[in-house]
Simulated scan of single mutants.
Amino acid sequence: MPICSDFRYLGSLVQGNGEVDWDIKHRINGGWMKWRPVKGTTCDPRMLLKLKGKIYKYVIRPVILYGSECWAVKKMDEKRLHVAEMRMLRWMCGVTRMDKVRNECIRGSLKVAPVTEKLEGNRLPWYGYVKRRDKTYVTKRE
């Protein structure tokens, strides 16, 4: 039987060692690709912060979290997602790290929940779906 190093499962690339580093990097890059077309709107200081937050929640974050139901993320992966998200949110608000504005303040002004909480929220329904499968399903057989 051949040993495969990488495989795709539900659109996610799972590496031979069980990690999803490549897929997370790919999703973050996809988020930045969606960021570019809406950058004119989200970085405009005349736009309401609440509207900028909605654009982020409905356009950019779904791209980043697509296929995250089956990810086995490590703390480093969560941190990578958090850093990318905060860079986008700070850019939307026109705030730099030198301004020393806390992340919670930025999230509160845009009304955006942390991406790690959304990541957990995406995994829970998937887990319930897997638990409710038939006993004759391939993954449930012993």
Score class of each variant (00 low, 15 high):
73 V>P: 10
1 M>Y: 07
134 D>A: 08
117 E>A: 06
41 T>V: 15
5 S>Y: 06
69 E>D: 11
97 R>M: 09
72 A>T: 02
83 V>K: 06
1 M>R: 02
42 T>R: 05
17 N>R: 08
12 S>L: 12
116 T>G: 10
88 M>S: 02
142 E>G: 02
78 E>S: 13
29 N>I: 04
118 K>Y: 10
107 R>D: 00
119 L>A: 03
69 E>C: 06
81 L>S: 01
119 L>M: 08
105 C>Y: 11
5 S>H: 11
109 S>P: 04
118 K>C: 01
67 G>F: 07
29 N>H: 14
39 K>H: 01
123 R>C: 14
19 E>V: 04
105 C>R: 15
129 Y>V: 01
50 K>Y: 09
54 K>H: 00
30 G>N: 15
100 K>N: 00
82 H>Y: 03
22 W>P: 06
37 P>V: 05
23 D>G: 01
40 G>F: 02
43 C>N: 10
100 K>Q: 07
65 L>D: 13
81 L>R: 05
125 P>G: 00
130 V>C: 11
118 K>G: 06
87 R>Y: 12
113 A>I: 15
49 L>W: 15
128 G>M: 10
108 G>Y: 11
62 P>I: 04
103 N>E: 00
115 V>Q: 09
55 I>E: 02
139 T>F: 10
33 M>Q: 05
69 E>P: 00
67 G>W: 10
48 L>M: 14
101 V>E: 02
72 A>V: 02
49 L>K: 15
108 G>T: 13
115 V>A: 09
58 Y>Q: 13
1 M>S: 13
140 K>P: 07
1 M>G: 14
68 S>H: 04
122 N>V: 03
117 E>I: 01
96 T>M: 04
108 G>C: 04
67 G>I: 03
99 D>K: 03
5 S>P: 06
128 G>N: 12
54 K>G: 12
32 W>Q: 04
62 P>G: 09
94 G>A: 08
28 I>A: 04
60 I>W: 03
101 V>M: 11
23 D>F: 01
41 T>D: 05
88 M>L: 10
141 R>F: 02
68 S>C: 14
93 C>M: 14
44 D>C: 09
74 K>E: 13
111 K>S: 11
49 L>N: 15
40 G>N: 06
32 W>L: 12
20 V>C: 08
7 F>N: 12
42 T>P: 01
16 G>N: 07
80 R>V: 01
12 S>R: 07
140 K>C: 01
102 R>T: 00
60 I>D: 12
53 G>T: 12
6 D>W: 13
57 K>E: 10
92 M>Y: 06
59 V>T: 03
131 K>A: 03
